[in-house]
Amino acid sequence: MGLTDFFKRTAQALAPEQELFDEEFQRKLDYLAVISRRLFAGRLRAERRTKKTGSGIEFADHREYSAGDDLRYLDWKVFGRSERMLLKLFEEEEDLSIYVLLDCSESMAFGTPSKFDHGRKLAAALAYVGLANLDRVALVAISTKVDKTLPTTRGKGRIFKIFDFLRSVRTGGTTALADAARMFTAQQKRRGIAIVITDLYDPEGFERGINAIRYRKFEPIVVHLIDPREADPGARGDVTLVDVETGESREITLTDGMVRAYREAHLSWRKEIDDFCTSRRVPYVAADVTEPFEDQVLRLFRRLAVVE
């Protein structure tokens, strides 16, 4: 490989990292935040949401007045100076912690675009919506353990730290959800929502990982990343299947019939996951990487009965 080729390949590898959270992406985040905020006001107030205008004592932020807002929280001084109707936001003492757990095992890098990139976008979107609503948000990169953690943070302005964190994480290693979950719950004393963004390809079984979160009083939400192209490897004939995480290989003769059987097995496996989550009342969302991430975020909110 020549020097030119090296720089070319490096440039190709870095370019998606820069483009991952571009301006277009950030506009979509604002859109998601607005929708979620408009509906926060009418639902779940004083149940688990920490942000509520007027209910706290510590000033946190301003936002534009919209119809239906309590006029008591209008900042009249600002209105007197600039004639802009801004609402004062205050923090409540008991706020909500949101933990976004992103699977960084090697299988997440499979495919183009990869599940990992899609997962990072989802993680950023969920974190932004949380930050926009003055929740406490933490990001955790996991594989067989907790690889990297972005400590709990709040405020919309912190979104760029989240972007930087997500850009810095890399895929590698195998998946052990149970071990990673145990390590995560041990590290985080404050309970909250744990959104696990993963492909659930855990040789030890995904159930143990989810249960490990549940047993420590966290509320798990499973965002299952699915790439439909994985259901058909494309090749036919005498091939060697190689597991990208474990390196485990198996020689088989791949026929159309066998691929059909695999596709059925894949569907069956997904149904097992769905059934498991439903039976444990764990919110479960299947996120197809070939679909736009914003739709999946909204679907997740609907699933959580946040967005209608």
């Binding site: 495919g111 004939g237 005498d238 190689v242 995480e245 290989s249 198996r250 695999y262």
Partner: peptide
């Protein structure tokens, strides 16, 4: 044989 990478060989089993 041609090597075909798969994300999760357990499912193939």
């Amino acid at each position: 044989r041609r090597q075909v990478p798969v994300p999760f060989a357990r499912l193939w089993q």
